[in-house]
């Protein structure tokens, strides 16, 4: 009885990428606890959870787009534009803080929708479309301001730094988003269609799925989560920063890949992405404790991507 249940759970973990990520996580945590007495503390883990939220939000959006077979290179630009939009407007009218939270999320969703719309209408590769959007957004932002600008009311810091029973609010929101997206992808018809569209658009179309609608939802969601990441960064720094999103675009792809999603779509578990986010955040935290220079951390990040994707060896469509 017991053996069969173990067998079953093993079978559920058949996806090798998940096992590898969990293994790597365990290695990082054990190494960290041995090497530094501050790393293994609950306090540190909570800090990491708080810092991981921005990357986490961006990665959820990227993951959804990757599952339907696309890619979103405009995430960083949407993050930046959201921080500027929110901080600049609220700076002028502090009373608009709460409406602007929704306004910013709506803005992100609209940009995402636009990405999706152009992609399905023109048939142009999403790489090019989202690159174009990113260029336009960045240009607009940089014409508006070249340095960090605007402000938000003090209480908005609670979103990033606030604690709920010593658990960071931002981390909780991130975990909640992951759970909701997981439930959506697994138990909702629309969510399951994501995998169908990513796996084979033609087959999905033949089985009566409206591929265009699914693609639109995925890109809109990506924009939404990018704007949420933007709100998180505003809450951390209280300003809108015209450069804050630059590194996010590419770093949002790393956890997605580590989590076992395939560029090309149709496969992967969203919790893998969450584990990827934890792995990246804990690793960078550990390397900081070990006084490893940022430059070496870049090398390590690049090598992790290479090693991870070479181990997974996905046959199939490439992007």
């Amino acid at each position: 009885m017991k053996l069969t249940s173990v067998n079953q759970s093993l079978r559920r973990l058949q996806d090798p990428s998940l096992i590898i990520v969990i293994l790597l996580l365990v290695i990082v945590v054990i190494t960290g606890s041995v090497l530094s007495d501050r790393f293994g503390t609950m306090r540190n883990f909570m800090n990491v959870l708080e810092q991981a939220a921005g990357l986490g939000f961006a990665s959820i959006g990227q993951a959804l787009v990757v599952i339907v077979g696309g890619i979103d290179l405009s995430i960083g630009a949407v993050v930046t534009a959201s921080t500027i939009l929110m901080a600049a407007v609220v700076d002028l009218h502090p009373a608009l803080m709460i409406p602007m939270i929704f306004g910013t999320l709506l803005f992100g969703t609209m940009i995402g929708f636009l990405n999706g719309y152009v992609t399905i209408r023109t048939g142009v590769h999403p790489l090019i479309v989202t690159l174009g959007t990113a260029s336009i957004l960045n240009g607009a932002v940089l014409i508006y301001t070249l340095q960090p600008t605007g402000s938000v009311p003090y209480w908005f810091e609670e979103f990033a730094y606030g604690r709920f029973w010593s658990v960071p609010v931002s981390g909780l929101v991130m975990l909640l988003c992951f759970v909701m997206v997981w439930v959506f992808l697994r138990y909702f018809e629309t969510g399951r269609a994501f995998y169908a569209v990513g796996g084979s658009p033609d087959a999905a179309h033949l089985s009566g799925i409206q591929c265009n609608k699914i693609t639109l939802i995925a890109y809109s969601a990506s924009g939404f989560f990018a704007a949420l990441a933007g709100a998180y960064f505003v809450s951390r720094t209280s300003v809108g920063d015209p450069r804050v999103g630059d590194p996010i675009t590419l770093s949002s792809i790393t956890p997605v890949i580590l989590g076992g999603l395939i560029l090309g779509g149709g496969k992967g578990n969203i919790f893998g992405v969450l584990l990827g986010v934890f792995l990246i955040s804990l690793l960078s935290n550990l390397l900081n404790y070990m006084n490893v220079s940022t430059f070496i951390q870049w090398v390590i990040q690049g090598l992790i991507i290479i090693v991870a994707v070479s181990i997974y060896v996905h046959k199939g469509r490439k992007l």
Partner: peptide, 14 residues
Amino acid sequence: NVSPFLATLAMMIV
């Protein structure tokens, strides 16, 4: 069999 996007992205970072 790494996707070109990822292989060269990683190379860029390294």
